[in-house]
Write a protein that binds this DNA or RNA. Structure first.
Length: 459
RNA sequence: GGCGCGAUGGCAGAGUGGUCAUGCAGGGGACUGCAACUCCCCGUACAGCGGUUCGAUUCCGCUUCGUGCCUCCA
């Protein structure tokens, strides 16, 4: 019952050994809230929700922290464009993010800290770095002194020389070293800012996660995660800040022991990103597809692999979701028995670096067994296995209440037509019965004949 | 330019040194008046070239192609 995963820091698959098996601590970098979340943002949320579900099924206590970045230059731009206060933007999109993720079956993090509520912590951490000679103030900025960190580059596997060679941005004149990054920057009067020992300003991006992770989890903690594009520079810089502040710069694991990174969602092979403009908003997609279908789609590929978003992916996910719903209908009056064959279970697939594609294939076999059980006596066990699988995969199986949206008048009309159709069928007047079916389809109603009679459903 | 990842049947996507992935799509059949659902059957997939091996899709090397990070990005 041990978890294995690919640790980005060691670049190999390892067995997860908790720092404290009685309390697992996980941090994952959350979104910057200035717009609707796109599918790529959702992948991060679903992947780490999946990790946390697995962890919570194995350990007595798990604390999952995932932040909201609510101070950032892009937010300031968005607020200015909309002509509203920053808070209005950040509150709106934080709420929408949480609602959208909930519709995908993502449980809220145990703690969801906001950057603006930790400015003091960031200032304090920045001061410590200055005091210890790892940071310096210059022209209202405070910069992290990268050459002062002997382990810098441990996560991303880059030497400083490589970065300089590849530097595509002009180096600010106040930087001592081109690789130095901002911990604190000055704000003009019309920009959001806080008072600090270095004047009125705002934090750089990386410092917030160092501050919030330490504040809420303590150091070191077990697992730190996020999207693969955060590995460098964001995560690299977090390690530098936290380890240097704690005089443990030579040991990158003194911040977080393991690092997990999810791959990207792509569209026609290219990364879905805001800059390319090829992104789809979760908010829009859930208008057309149930949340669980999106979640299944996001779990179709292994979390470290790219996931190509397409209509066919959604179609396939939708089919699986229908099969799950059908299985629940079949099992409606069966008592479940929780007695899982662990070796071949969905959970055991997840233990191996969160192999969701394998888990889904096992779910499919399970569904087949439910549709055609060797003996009916097997059903209670199968139901138990299904419930366990669905629970750990976070798939909300909701009975379609879509028929509720049909008006009472229409229901009467439908029932009348169905009664007429049964009569026609009894008289072997199949021409008439097919006509009735066509009429219903025109009304947007699909029917199906079962042993128990005819059921109908809004399309 | 530096560092990294990937290449599996029409599509998606696991996995393995030597017998099965799985799903979607497609074809055939069973069931049903017909549909739908469900069930059964059907495709000699592992980029190319070398090497290691009794044996490689799986290990090693090279080539080609694709893609990611190095700039805000999950």
């Amino acid at each position: 019952m041990t978890i294995k995963f690919y640790n980005s820091l060691s670049r190999q698959k390892e067995e997860f050994v908790p720092l404290d098996a009685d309390h697992i601590k996980i941090y994952a970098c959350g979104p910057t809230v200035y717009n609707y979340a796109h599918i790529g943002n959702a992948r991060m949320a679903v992947v780490f929700d999946q990790w946390v579900r697995l962890m919570k099924s194995l350990y007595p206590k798990v604390t999952y922290v995932s932040n909201i970045t609510d101070v950032e230059d892009k937010i300031m731009v968005a607020a200015k464009e909309a002509g509203v206060p920053i808070l209005e933007i950040t509150e709106k999109y934080t709420r929408i993010y949480n609602e959208d993720m909930a519709s995908l079956g993502v449980n809220a993090p145990d703690i969801q800290p906001k950057a603006t509520e930790h400015i003091d912590d960031m200032i304090a951490l920045t001061q410590v770095l200055i005091d210890k000679g790892h940071a310096y103030a210059a022209e209202g900025h405070v910069l992290f002194d990268v050459p002062s960190d002997p382990s810098y580059g441990a996560l991303s596997g880059r030497s400083r020389d490589e970065q300089i060679a590849g530097a595509r941005v002009e180096v600010a004149p106040y930087k001592r070293d081109p690789a130095d990054f901002v911990l604190w920057k000055p704000s003009s009067d019309d920009q959001v800012g806080w008072d600090s020992p270095w004047g009125r300003g705002r934090p750089g991006w990386h410092i917030e996660c160092s501050a919030m992770a330490e504040q809420h989890l303590g150091l070191p903690f077990d697992i730190h995660g996020g999207g693969a594009d955060l590995k460098f520079p964001h995560h690299e810089n977090e390690i530098a800040q936290s380890c240097c502040a704690n005089d443990t710069a030579t040991d990158p694991t003194s911040f977080a022991k393991y690092w997990l990174h999810n791959g990207f969602v792509t569209v026609e092979g290219e990364k879905m990103s805001k800059s390319l403009g090829n992104f789809l908003l979760v908010h829009d997609v859930i208008e057309k597809f149930p949340g669980p279908v999106l979640r299944i789609a996001l779990l179709m590929a292994h979390y470290r692999q790219p996931l190509d978003w397409s209509d066919q992916l959604l179609h396939q996910s939708g089919k699986l979701y229908e099969r799950i719903q059908r299985a629940y209908e079949i099992l409606e009056n069966v008592d479940s028995v929780r007695n899982v064959d662990f070796k071949e279970s969905v959970t055991s697939a997840l233990l191996d670096d969160l192999n969701t594609p394998l888990a889904i294939s096992r779910l499919n076999s399970l569904l087949s067994s439910i549709f055609s059980p060797e003996v009916d006596e097997a059903l209670p066990n199968l139901k138990g296995m299904l419930e366990k699988a669905i629970e750990i995969l976070g798939i909300d199986v909701v009975k379609d209440n879509i028929n509720d949206s049909v008006s009472d008048d229409d229901v009467i009309k439908i029932e009348t037509l169905l009664a007429e159709r049964i009569e026609a069928k009894d008289n072997k007047d199949y021409k008439r019965s097919d006509e009735i079916r066509d009429e219903l389809i025109e009304m947007g109603i699909a029917i199906k004949d079962t042993r128990e009679g005819t059921s109908w459903e809004k399309i």
